[in-house]
Design a binder for these strands. Structure first.
Lengths: 193, 193, 193, 193
DNA sequence: TATGAATGAGTGTTCATTCAT
DNA sequence: GATGAATGAACACTCATTCAT
């Protein structure tokens, strides 16, 4: 019986990622229940509130990304790893969840924890990339997050041509590899403040 | 009387930009009416449908941006102009409207026209920047639009620290000024494919 | 100026007959104004209330029917006259107004007066037809009215084939010419109580 | 629980018959909910659309009448049966539903089926009455339906004195038992095939 | 006087949440 | 524990009526 509940919970979360990822917070819990193949009220037994459901789905998404980031951090090639992480976050954020868009007011401590863990993992990968010289040292995780969120949201609400998305990501990567515009890189001392 | 109606129409559109810009299409017309200081039904007298209201607000926003883009295109300094345009589009898109996110199905011909005019004006400024050497020639308006939309949406749904936004924009500008990453610029042949 | 007002009033009433005759009390005053070619508020200047408008339209219809009934009463052939009156009332009631259907609560004295005058005129034609032997003497104007109203309403809400309507009217006329069923007419004393 | 739903459904349908029968399609679903003693939204859970609710109420009414007609058809006395059926249809149509008045555009196949079944059953009773000589053979079900609908609607919108309704029905029955007016029955061959 | 504009009350419909089985 | 049923709050939209020009 506990087993059934677990399975249901998992199916509901998967459905929630699909529904809210596609339609934003406007998606209905009934749609989630339908896709999960469970009764409408069962969703509420597991997640007493729509907000809590969204939060749980987000949390799961965050945890997954954290795992990927940690795996990448354990990898020998920081430059490639960084690039991969960026793409992954944008693409999965696009089709599935527009990250922290929902949940404006009061994220639960669990969500905050997951978010912090993810940020820490991303920061670690970023730092490795910076150490390897692939990303200029002045970049912080804040602006990177903003760019990731932006491309993910934009892709979710109006899916671009994959080529276009790819080129946009390249622009970001390229921008991260040089000193900020206005201080054009001169030959010989590429990345420095 | 015509005067009153004009004023109301203007107030409604301003309110609509605020509401739909912040909350997306999920915003309610009643909220718009409240902020405009008019009765609920007055909104419908001016815009018989929620969709038409959103469209009208978008159109107004597009037209304004087009004017700004054209003004910038008439300016002698393409590099600065380009930078200014980018910032303007992202920042006003942020506080006001998440650009073309809404209106999924059937944009009216008027909206399409306004959108096309804006794209043309932006393209013109972009071309000038490319001719001046400030932006690498391989960049197309498509990926630039995607980045703009992304930063505007992300800023609208979860307003970032202005510093952070600024740095994110710098990254984009910087990325646009160099050849795409993966083909690192070697000294002597700065921007080429 | 008084002339304009008269003309407007007339046009409004004509439009009202069309609109309410076709759609019942569910018809909108705006539709009436549109068909009359006047502004929406003008209708309300002439008839301060939707009910009063409907009443006025009814009244006009009643007066017209009264005139026709009186004209028929002045005619030498009571049998034909009766038949004509019945058809007229059903057919014009159908296309134009479902008679007293609207105005449930409180008909104005004017409307009551018009209604009474019409009933009196119809009664007169009926009496003549009875005197001539075309209609059996036991019939009263009450049941005749009910049948007329019924056929008019039924025709208005779901227009029948003209042939069908004609045959239905014939059935009523035929039923009015014989003693009621159950006391089958024996030869020799055809119509009497 | 299934039991409760059934009861509610039944109560809603009964309320709908009353409301729409009296006020036509202009009646409100809220009124229906109130009379059924259920919440507003419960009505929509059972019948997702006002049209579907009206249709379901009609269908139930039709089915009931069909059953009565079939029962009458199985009876030994066609003349009495015919008279009873007519009265029943008019009287229940009156207090309950003005028959097929609503549902202008697209009656569902279920509704069409029910309507056809009823018409067939009525036709059968009519044919028996004609065979027995109680109704003249030239009458078709079409005009009979029109008269029934008319008296039902008229009675619903402005309830007549029962006496008056009775006499009106007698007129119809009498009209159906003779050849149409204009070809007055001569003594000796009153009603024949 | 005629009218475009404004609006409150009402309607059909959806949805998150609660309840009874 | 799971679920169909119930419901109040909210929303988009309509319309009779009033107001200001």
């Amino acid at each position: 019986m506990r087993q059934d509940a677990r399975e249901n919970r998992e199916r509901i979360l998967a459905a929630a990622e699909e529904v809210f990822g596609t339609q934003g917070a406007a998606g209905s819990t009934e749609e989630v229940a339908r896709r999960a193949g469970v009764g409408h009220a069962t969703v509420f037994r597991h997640f007493p509130t729509k907000e809590e459901l969204i939060e749980a789905a987000l949390l799961r998404h965050f945890d997954r990304l954290t795992d990927q980031a940690l795996a990448i951090a354990a990898t020998p090639d920081p430059a490639t790893g960084w690039r991969t992480l960026l793409r992954t976050m944008i693409e999965t954020g696009a089709t599935k969840l527009t990250l922290g868009t929902m949940l404006p007011a009061k994220p639960s401590t669990a969500a905050i924890g997951a978010s912090d863990r993810l940020k820490a993992a991303v920061s670690e990968v970023l730092r490795q990339a910076q150490n390897s010289g692939a990303v200029r040292p002045s970049a912080t995780v804040e602006e990177v997050y903003l760019l990731i969120r932006g491309l993910a949201q934009a892709s979710a609400t109006m899916p671009p041509n994959p080529e276009t998305l790819s080129r946009a990501i390249d622009i970001v990567l390229s921008g991260l590899s040089q000193p900020p515009r206005g201080y054009p890189s001169r030959c010989g001392n590429d990345h420095q403040t």
